[in-house]
Amino acid sequence: MALVGNLRDLKLANLIQLNCMEKNTAKLTIEHAGKYGIIYFHGGQIVHAEYDPDIGDNAVYRLLTLEEGNFKVEGGVRSPALTVESSWSNILLEGLHQIDHRKSAEDGINQHLLEMLMNIKGVERAAVISANGSAITSNFTDPDGFVLGAWTVMEINQLISEAQLGTKDFITVVSDKNRLLLREYNDQIMYIELADKIQIDTILPFIQKAFVTV
């Protein structure tokens, strides 16, 4: 019987460890955002991996970055190819090292972008938030505001998909409390609060320039 679940509940690193330590021969399929990744295990090692466009070690490294996605482990399925020769423990160490490295690089970029935005006249506060409304890089907290920002982006994305519109650059939201500018980038959301008096269309080119520069 296949083992099924979501990477939210069981991390890929743990799944790999489990299959290799148990010396399973198995096929692990992961579905994330409509794309499929596959890892084959044989005799306690990873022997083959695919995650378009990567094959082998790099496919595993990229799959390790996924924080969610449905998975299925089918026991007894043999690999059609041999593309991974490193030991599973080396692959895990290198993959996790790459994630740390990427995360610190992203933190640096976020910090730099926030500094650039804060230097624009009319920008009151700015933060990088996740799609679930949590702060990623921010020097202020507004949990409800961040969730409303993430909610707005999620609904607008659905709207664009349902109405078959082209990709968007920015969303602006004016409420009786504040004026927001939202922009998705690198799977994150830039949440920008603008001063009351500033015209959004006046400030927009400067904000666009900051994103292009970073």
Partner: peptide, 15 residues
């Protein structure tokens, strides 16, 4: 959350 929306714009390069 007790806020009242006044305007939402979706801005793209071509619409």
């Amino acid at each position: 959350k007790g806020q009242s929306l006044k305007e939402i714009d979706i801005i793209a390069s071509n619409y």
